[in-house]
Write a protein that binds this DNA or RNA. Structure first.
Lengths: 252, 252
DNA sequence: CGCGAACTTGACTGTAGTCAACCTGCGTGG
DNA sequence: CCACGCAGGTTGACTACAGTCAAGTTCGCG
């Protein structure tokens, strides 16, 4: 047992199952995917910007950020990914450099060959659908980031991001009062398009509602934080309807 | 022949073919999709925010914007879609309210039932893949919007957007010197997260490189505009490699 | 010809950026 | 065990880009 606790592929399947319906043999096909584990130290790039890959990166432990760079080298994060996320599943169908992946802390990645992902996606339409849907949820988050960065002031932006991560880190469908978020204030600025200095001031002014310290977040007043952060978790869930809607067609 | 010129579904197939390989019978399956045409006047919402749909919207003619709203009603566009685009293909796998769709000018939409899309996606894995890839290209554009809105100043932002649309409106892989872009300066602000007043000043300062007037864009100096706009069209293309990569597996 | 929407311009404001100094906590090595 | 170094955090003073407000002007359409 290389991975203490749970198998990262099982974590990934669980993530998919929260949004899509998969039969046992489909789940097994995913669990049987070939993987190559690689460890990265904090602050290292897992995939360099503009790098083309022939594998996707499953986060086994740790945390990663996807990022882009402007022409003059300014960095902007476009997503955070936690353990169990396939951080760049989308490269399966579009392998061209789609931004970089950066390890926020010591992180173990499982490389999963695109070829293997393609094979099971073709064999099992429900798997292709689950992968597609997973990418769409990521895109829904991205839309929120455009809104966040474009239209909200600093306090709202930071609060919204902290709410998003609290929701996504939750095991149930709710939120986590306390969660690991191993980012510096500089990196928080890369995500919210603020400077480190302004993030610092903003966090201080948010001190009654939430504390970000030593790489972890402690929420003191969820109701107030979501209100201030203009946060509604609806965009994070794929489906509230009956389970059958999670599947294009019953194959049986 | 209801639609003068070309069949909108054919336009959609062409768009897919520019990114994915589809056999004749797969193309025909798409062309056979049932559609319901609906006309919208300029400035009307095609899909209201938070509305759940059971169909996707194919733009037959005109132009639409996808948008989100902050809690206090400030609008932010997150994408523009031109004729031949399935503006919300992603709702097929995630039908929950994923933002609104707004007609920028008089626009004809073909409603395509999710159920029909699901059916052919399940029957033909290559179609599911093409749809998935199409959504990924949209997501790649969205990542650029985060970068644009988050990290670039007003001139660069506007220039970048105008470059994006010039590339996407091109029939070949290049760009269009002159193209229809029926937006007011207010709407340009909704896309770039600027106020109408500042868009106005910015456009004036860009006058040597590009003119935006009467709902159309005229580019005077493409090289300078892309340089100023920090624009590289790479993110718009799905694949530069050999054609076989456009398809997960050969089904034949 | 007249109305309204869109565009234009100027004056002033404000949020966040910049620059710079300093503090704090932690790991390393003398 | 303390000294040092360094990354990250904190604070203050000043700046600037874009927002706001308000008053015109232009354009297109009925």
């Amino acid at each position: 047992m290389i991975y203490p606790g749970s198998n990262p592929l099982q974590l990934f399947v669980n993530r998919l199952l929260s949004r899509s319906a998969l039969a046992m043999r489909e789940q097994e096909a995913i669990l049987d995917l070939p993987t190559q584990p690689i460890d990265f130290l904090a602050r290292r790039d897992i995939v360099k910007i503009d790098e083309d890959t022939d594998y996707a990166c499953l986060v086994a432990s740790g945390m990663v950020a996807r990022f882009g760079l402007t022409g003059d080298g300014v960095r902007q994060f476009t997503a955070f990914h936690i353990a169990g996320d396939m951080a760049d599943l989308h490269t399966t169908v579009r392998p061209l450099g789609s931004g970089g992946l950066h390890a926020l802390c010591d992180t173990t990645i499982l490389r999963v060959p695109h070829r293997a992902i393609r094979t099971i996606a073709t064999r099992f339409p429900a798997i292709a659908e689950a992968f597609w849907r997973d990418c769409i949820v990521d895109a829904a988050i991205l839309m929120q980031w455009v809104l966040n960065v474009g239209r909200r002031d600093a306090r709202t932006r930071v609060a919204h991001l902290l709410c998003e991560m609290a929701s996504r880190c939750a095991d149930d469908g709710e939120f986590r009062q306390h969660y690991a978020f191993p980012v510096t204030q500089e990196q928080l600025g890369d995500a919210t398009a603020l400077t480190a200095v302004h993030v610092n001031r903003t966090l201080k002014s948010l001190g009654d509602l939430v504390t970000v310290k030593h790489g972890s977040v402690q929420i003191h007043d969820w109701a107030a934080l979501t209100r201030l952060g203009d946060f509604d978790a609806a965009y994070l869930v794929a489906d509230t309807g009956p389970a059958r809607q999670r599947r294009l067609l019953d194959v049986e």
